[in-house]
């Protein structure tokens, strides 16, 4: 399938006429992708998810979900949803829960029974399927919730903090399920605080701050501006290196010395290596570095004027003393290099 699973334009929500939870959100989620929505507490992520699932009515919204106008109830039969802080009926067993919500999503009886068994096995809850939900731990409830979200064989799966309360092994298994969903052609809309997890499974992400999407795109695209090369070597005592018209600072790193080339390409690194070899230095390594998603996120939620994190929560009118978040789109201004930058995927090291 091609096209977008979600196309959102000018989605706004004002609670009680003064709390601006969402401000003209523009978002595109490609079909068949695992999409991560990031943001600090109170950024409006859950409100956005609730608008998609008709739990909250938008003040203004345009766009489509699975090709149908936003807010159309019939499309929800093709959507699976696991809310954050859900409360399952305590009188149901895991199997009854999955089957009940399958029926609510208009899944035929035979199909939902079969899928309930398959999915409970998939999430590792087969042995607990016929026990009451009240006996489940938080992690087990999350697993069952994922089975519930998938029972109607949805094209779009919206998961709000699915790994909340789940142990590391369980998280790994849930990640595997997400990857499997993608391989089955489903679109996954993941709302999570856990950036490392998002980074591991998501094809693209959006960062929301104070009700606005300030950045969106693939993780590579979001972190591309921070790309740099790091060359480590032995054998020169200079504090700076002059290569062509560039002057590079040399840092001491134990026995090794290091120079960094911000936003460089592979071609730009070659003269530096040539220069070092010409001066009989021993090149120990060349690393392709870029910022982690966490660093990108932290920078996105930081007030550019004060350098401090923007206050959490929705804006009430025009909040005094707060700057507007960075503008929409993949437009986060590059900052200086960070010592904790990570090597990019496929980064070379010699």
């Amino acid at each position: 399938m091609t096209g977008s699973a979600l196309e959102l334009h000018r989605v706004s929500k004002v609670f009680r006429g003064r709390v601006h939870a969402l401000r003209d959100v523009e978002l595109t989620v490609p079909r068949g992708a695992v999409f991560g929505l990031l943001g600090p507490n109170g950024a409006g992520k859950s409100t956005l998810v609730k608008i998609l699932t008709t739990v909250v009515r938008p003040t203004r919204a345009e766009g489509t979900m699975l090709g149908e106008p936003l807010g159309r109830r019939s499309v929800l039969a093709r959507v699976g949803y696991l809310p954050e802080h859900h409360r399952f009926p305590q009188y149901l067993t895991g199997r009854q829960l999955v089957e009940f919500f399958g029926a609510m999503a208009r899944t035929p009886r035979a199909l939902r029974r079969r899928r309930a068994s398959e999915l409970l096995e998939l999430v590792g809850m087969r042995d607990w399927a016929d026990k009451r939900v009240t006996t489940y731990s938080k992690g087990m409830q999350q697993r069952t919730g994922i089975a519930m979200a998938l029972v109607n064989d949805p094209e779009l799966v919206i998961l709000d903090e699915p790994t909340d309360g789940v142990d590391p092994v369980g998280r790994r298994e849930i990640r595997d399920v997400l990857v499997r969903m993608r391989s089955e052609g489903r679109t996954v809309f993941l709302n999570s605080h856990l950036l490392s997890e998002v980074e591991m499974v998501c094809d693209s992400v959006a960062i929301m701050v104070q009700g606005r999407v300030v950045s969106q795109g693939t993780i590579d695209a979001l972190t591309a501006h921070s790309r740099r090369f790091e060359v480590t070597f032995l054998g020169l005592d200079d504090s700076t290196l002059r290569v062509g018209d560039r002057e590079l600072a040399v840092e001491q790193d134990g026995d090794l010395r290091r120079v960094r080339l911000p936003a460089a390409t592979v071609e730009e690194v070659q003269p530096v290596i040539d220069h070092l070899r010409a001066r009989r230095a021993l090149v120990a390594g060349v690393r392709d570095m870029r910022e982690s998603l966490e660093e990108t996120f932290i920078r996105a939620v930081r007030d550019p004027a004060t350098g401090r994190a923007l206050p959490p929560g929705a804006i009430q009118g025009r909040a005094a003393g707060t700057s507007a978040p960075p503008p929409l789109g993949n437009t986060i201004a590059p900052q200086g290099t960070s010592p904790s930058a990570r090597p990019s995927e496929g980064g070379s090291s010699t």
Binding site: S74, L76, A77, H86, R87, F88, R106
Partner: peptide, 11 residues
Amino acid sequence: SGSIDLMVSKP
């Protein structure tokens, strides 16, 4: 809270 989301998000 937590229960209503599951119900009203269905068709």
